[in-house]
Amino acid sequence: MALLEIRNLHVNVEDKPILKGLNLTIDRGEVHAIMGPNGAGKSTLSYVIAGRSGYDVTDGQVLFNGKDILEMEVDERACAGLFLAFQYPVEIPGVTNTTFLKTALNSVRRARGESALDAMQFLKYVREKAKPLGIGDDMLKRAVNVGFSGGEKKRNEVLQMAVLEPVMAVLDETDSGLDIDALKIVAEGVNALRGPEKSTLIITHYQRLLDYIVPDHVHVLADGRIVKSGGKELALELEANGYAEFTGAAAA
């Protein structure tokens, strides 16, 4: 059974069709990349998988471990092992990163039938996860994403992912706004979480990130559908030729 299977997904936003019959199958251990021009529906796809409100699924299914997650609450999906790294991580004034991570981890642990970690156990655990990402105690004590630079916000997303250990991670434009050093740290963080049972879906406009997180499959999303799929070399082709071929086809 595939880990994630999207079947004929149709999604409207404010009555406007954005996804128009999207199909995608991701097996365990695989890294897939979805590339596409602006407005193709990339972010819509990530939000629908995560369960954000305001997206009307008019047809189709999203199966995670064989179960249709469209019926599940946002937090239930997260507890089941889905993770979305946000393109624009949200600032939460007044909530420290540590409190946030601890509450999240213990929610997920309880859902998995594991015991909650106490403050000391948690601190040890989170420091281990934070160190390779260059996140020190000061960043853990600050309010979630408040006053963080672009690079810090993205590293913080990867830290959340490392802490929660999802089975399926969706990275939405994680490369946007990153310089090359930050990009490398983020990519190493993501690569460290790869494993035979875990899958990753990278949504991106540019090929750059894929130099560091090498995908098994690359798909082109244009006008709400996957219009072409291939191996990692497809990303290089797109980088060279752009999306004109696909947007042209969509217009015609």
Partner: peptide
């Protein structure tokens, strides 16, 4: 939404905010 995507249920997320 952000808090909930991290596994925190809606009531708890509201309380936190």
């Amino acid at each position: 939404f952000y808090l909930r995507t991290r596994g925190i249920d809606e009531a708890a997320a509201r309380d936190i905010l």
